[in-house]
Structure formats: structure tokens, C-alpha cells
Design a protein around this nucleic acid. Sequence first.
DNA 1: CACTTTATGTCAGTCACTGTCATCAGTAGA
DNA 2: TCTACTGATGACAGTGACTGACATAAAGTG
Lengths: 186, 186
Amino acid sequence: MSRWKPDARGRMIAAAMELFAERGFDATTAGDIAARAGVTERTFFRHFADKREVLFDGSGTLTHTVTDTILAAPAAVPALDAALAGMAAGGTLLAELREHAVRRSRIVAATPALHERELLKLAAMVDATADALRARGVADPTAALAAHSAVSVFHVAFGRWVTAPEPAPPFADCVADAASALRALS
Amino acid sequence: MSRWKPDARGRMIAAAMELFAERGFDATTAGDIAARAGVTERTFFRHFADKREVLFDGSGTLTHTVTDTILAAPAAVPALDAALAGMAAGGTLLAELREHAVRRSRIVAATPALHERELLKLAAMVDATADALRARGVADPTAALAAHSAVSVFHVAFGRWVTAPEPAPPFADCVADAASALRALS
DNA sequence: CACTTTATGTCAGTCACTGTCATCAGTAGA
DNA sequence: TCTACTGATGACAGTGACTGACATAAAGTG
């Protein structure tokens, strides 16, 4: 018998999602989340750098999947195509947890502070994508612009995917639609 | 003789820029800024929604210039071209205050919290740009993607413009360079 | 000259977040 | 088995961002 119940981190994430959905982000204190998870406020801040981060626990994994896919693409694949393949791969990660992704996105959309943090995570994805492209030999500013474009496609595709009525379309279809609209621009 | 010295807002902005540059954002309290500007902390928060906003006072004007330019473009101009024209127009606004823009961008780059807020302002520019394009009859997802693309070009162009050695190139040249790299992607 | 509006000061309060120290289960080594 | 040592947690005090409520007085308005 261990001293503490296991998966305190997971309990805090679940508690935060519930409380944010029930009362909203601003009306929920860090202490509230901690109490529902059965820990102290101090423990909450040991796991999460700030109150917003509790909703963005998987963003590192997502970005990692994206860059792995880009780096694994054959060298002949053009920059934008490689980046878009990364986005599609990241999407399959989300698709496994659609219910969670939808609930989470509703909470984020309802809270300016969380929306702002989401933009930071997307920017981190842009940077990581650009780094991966540079590692493939793509020069700036092409690498940066391809990364921006691909993440914009991901962003638009994600927005359509989470708001689509059930049964949800495959995430890859949303990416393909947005990508073709992007290519039609110029 | 008036009761208060005029332009409290401008004094607070100047004081914040000085203090952030001297000691950094985190080591500067709202009270410090207020004191240097000759007001109280409460007055600071009456003018700025939070400590970060003091560095983003002109962002509304910038976005407004962008959308005005987009709406004023002839109807025959394609979506992406209209959006890029808006970005170039916004750039001329910055070019008038290059010294300020450069100092400000250094402070923002050195502070994660300010970088995050800047992303929010860019996202607001994306939304406003997309709205302007929709008002021109551009449908989604094309409007959203053209807006994202144009603001990405602005972002990349701005980054190159502020870090360019003197004499600085015209902002419009930076936009043109980034735009042609964007078009070369697909 | 009243009356209102506007920009500020004052003060108390909540809450996000941090530093520090104590506690104690589990683990590794003597 | 005894003894450090490690790691996750609790307890607690402190700083600073931000808010609400009320007071004040210059400047505008009739």
C-alpha cells in the first residue's frame, strides 16, 4: 500500500476539466482543483507551471509526433508536403481521444486566457516544424513559411473537425480539405 | 493648471519600456511602473487590463489599418493579394516608429509572457483579416487560410525587418520577399 | 452657480504562484 | 536488518497581480 493514491497528475487534469466546464476557468481556483483531486494546492503547482497548463499536458507529445513524421519523410518530399504529413500524423493522435479533445476545445474556446495559451502551443509547433524542415535542408524563410502554413492548415482542420456533427469525418480529410484550399490561394 | 500632468498613459508606457529593458519584465512590478510615471498602481490597471498590455497599446490601430486597406482594395484583387496589401500598409505604420518597434521587439523576445501576448495580438489580426476578406465575399476556409498566410508573411517579414542592420530595408521589401517565398511553396 | 462627468487616489481583499522546511514510503547498499 | 538516500508530498508564510468600493477634485455643462 503506497502512501499516496497513484496518478495525481491525471486526477488533477480530470478535476480541472470538470470544474472548468461546471463553473468556468475564472471561477475555479487552483485550490479547488487540488482539493477535488485529493492533493494540496502546492502539489498542483509542482506538476503544472501555472493554472492554464493543466489543460495542455499532451501538447509536447503532439509536437513530437509531428516532428518525427517530418523527419521520417523521404528526402524527395517537398517542404510543404512533409510538414502537412506531420500535421496529419498529429491528427491521428487526437482522433483516438475525440471525446476528450472536443470537451477540451469547448473549454478553451470559452476562456480567453486558455485561448492565448493554445496559441503559444501552436507557435511552439510552428517552431518545432520549422526546425524539422531545416534539419531536412530547407532554408529560411521557406522553412518558416512552410511551417506556418502547415500549422495554419492544422488549426483550420482542427476547428472543423471538433465542430463537425457525428459521425466525425477522419481528421486526415479535414487536413486534406484545408490543404487544397491553401494551395488554391496562389 | 490642471490637477494631473497630461498623458499619464504615455508616461506609463515609456516607464514600462525603460524598466523592462533595465531589469526585465518579471523584476518590474506594476507599482514600479506607476511610481516612475507618477501615478498609483490602481491607475495603471485602469488604463491597462494587465501588466502585459502596456506594451501593446498600438495593436488595435495596426489591425484597423490592415482591415481598412483590405476593404479598400478593388473587388478584382484576389484574396491573398488583398490581404498582403493590408500587411504592407500595416508595415508603413511601424516604419514611422522604427526605433520604438525595435526596442519593443527586443523586450518582447526576452520575455515569454510578452511573447505569448504578442501571439494573441497576431491572432486577432488573423481574425480581423479573415473578417475583412469575408466582407469582400471570400468564403471559408479560403478566407481563414489567406488570413493566416498573410499574417504569417507579416510575422516573418517583421522579424527580418527588426533584426536587419541599419540602414533598414523598406518594410514593403521584407513583405515582398516573404510573400514570394510563400508562393513558391506550392 | 449647481450638477455631472472624468480621472484619479485610497484601501481592503482574493488568488496565482514561490521559497523553504518537514514528513515519510520505497529503495539501495552495508 | 539497519541505514542513508531519494522522491513526492504537506504545511506555511510571503510577494505581487488584479479587483471592488468609496472618496475627491478638476473640468465641463446647464
